[in-house]
Design a protein around this nucleic acid. Structure first.
Lengths: 241, 241
DNA sequence: GAGTGGTCTAGACCACGTA
DNA sequence: ACGTGGTCTAGACCACTCA
């Protein structure tokens, strides 16, 4: 844990505590620097973190203010456990979340997976279909492909929990990030079977590619859920350097 | 334009040029520092920018690599012209984009708008309904609310182009960022009328709140489009400090 | 003009991956 | 052991806002 992360944590607490309220001006960077006995650059890094989280906003000449982010409800942060991040579920809910393995096999990748994972038709992938249930209600149907070349061994036990965290810890290679594509579709027979919904009900589709830090795509997943049972959130913030 | 932005621009060009290819190692930070005759801290800032854009990924001990972002197709960046960012349209397409004003009036905010814009029932808002067409095909139906207190005067001409850029330049207050909530719904009579689709077709709904740097919510908008005509992208990157 | 945040430097030290 | 990127400092200068 670095200095600026510790400082960010303390300031975050103060914001959630209400010591600094939405639209309020915060103390300036020099004050924080002397309070925490660090250089201003370190304070700035801490503030940048909070800015990325959408908690505050700084303006040159006039100061740094708290944003009313509390309205936004739950937002998963990059750096959270990968599956939480992907499913966008608050940590408290995870105990009500179960995971059925519908399908688990090795196959050759289809065109889509080939292009997203940067592999050829001959390089086999694990294909997994999982059904996540929240409080025993079908929630998200997930299809994912992972190149075998990256994972020597994948067991049912691992598939049952977090595949990606297993891989990136085995390979000692962190995740660089993910890219998502989100659209809306109409329920087909597949959905009615797994998600307990009617034909033509609106389905929210979230396609995601996850990259390792060495630049290799490691997972291509498609998560599908019934329209009104899930929403996905995204934060876009203007951060300075 | 700061030094690190200029450097980031040059490196971005090199990546798109193919001077540095996906999964390739880039020169290290010291080399860049002496090439551009700046301190390493400045190089790092430039690289952080590219990291946020999902172009590269650095790993301590082993170097900085190019990610295969080219696969991702178009991704709008924070900092782009606000409407481009919201609609996620590449700049080239904007000449094929037209905008009809379906509705433009002053009213009292409904419950939803009140809570998102942090105002009371008595504070009136502009309500605008616009229909964006791409190559004369109905594309996005947008409903937006803006507190009158923030905008003394809004004309039809302004509504026809970018409202937010007008406001934030008039107020000399930049945008702090936006928050989006995305889900899927079923087409109602309103959609069939404006978006030229069938009842029960899947609709992608993107709700967005935009905040000014002083922390005030300035716009609450709901953008609706037919499922297969649009998709929304989101990038989640692990950036270091 | 006083006070704010943003940029930039030169150098130090540390954590990590690789061989 | 070496080379990499990440952190941190102390101080300088600049751009901006607001009274």
């Amino acid at each position: 844990m670095t200095k600026y992360e510790k400082i960010a944590e303390k300031l975050r607490e103060r914001i959630f505590n209400g010591d600094y309220k939405p639209t309020d001006l915060m103390p300036n960077q020099d004050e924080f620097a002397s309070e925490f006995r660090v250089s201003r650059a370190t304070i700035k890094k801490a503030l940048n973190l909070l800015t990325k989280e959408g908690l505050i906003s700084a303006q040159r000449g006039s100061g740094t203010r708290v944003l009313p982010r509390s309205l936004w409800g739950f937002v998963s942060e990059p750096g959270e456990k990968f599956d939480l991040e992907k499913l966008q579920i608050p940590e408290e809910s995870i105990k009500n979340l179960s995971c059925d393995i519908v399908d688990f096999e090795v196959q050759f990748p289809d065109k889509r997976a080939q292009s997203q994972l940067l592999i050829s038709r001959n390089q086999p992938v694990y294909h997994v279909r999982r059904l996540f249930k929240l409080e025993n209600e079908p929630f998200i149907l997930e299809d994912l492909s992972i190149p075998i070349s990256l994972v020597p061994l994948l067991s049912k036990k691992i598939v049952h929990s977090s595949i990606i965290t297993h891989i990136s810890s085995k390979l000692k290679l962190g995740l660089a990030g993910t890219f998502r594509n989100i659209y809306s579709a109409s329920a087909t027979e597949k959905h009615t079977r797994h998600l307990n919904c009617q034909r033509k009900d609106p389905i929210l589709v979230v396609e995601q590619v996850a990259y390792l830090k060495n630049g290799k795509p490691v997972e291509f997943s498609v998560c599908q859920s019934v329209g009104n049972r899930r929403s996905v959130t995204a934060v876009n913030v203007r951060t300075a350097g």
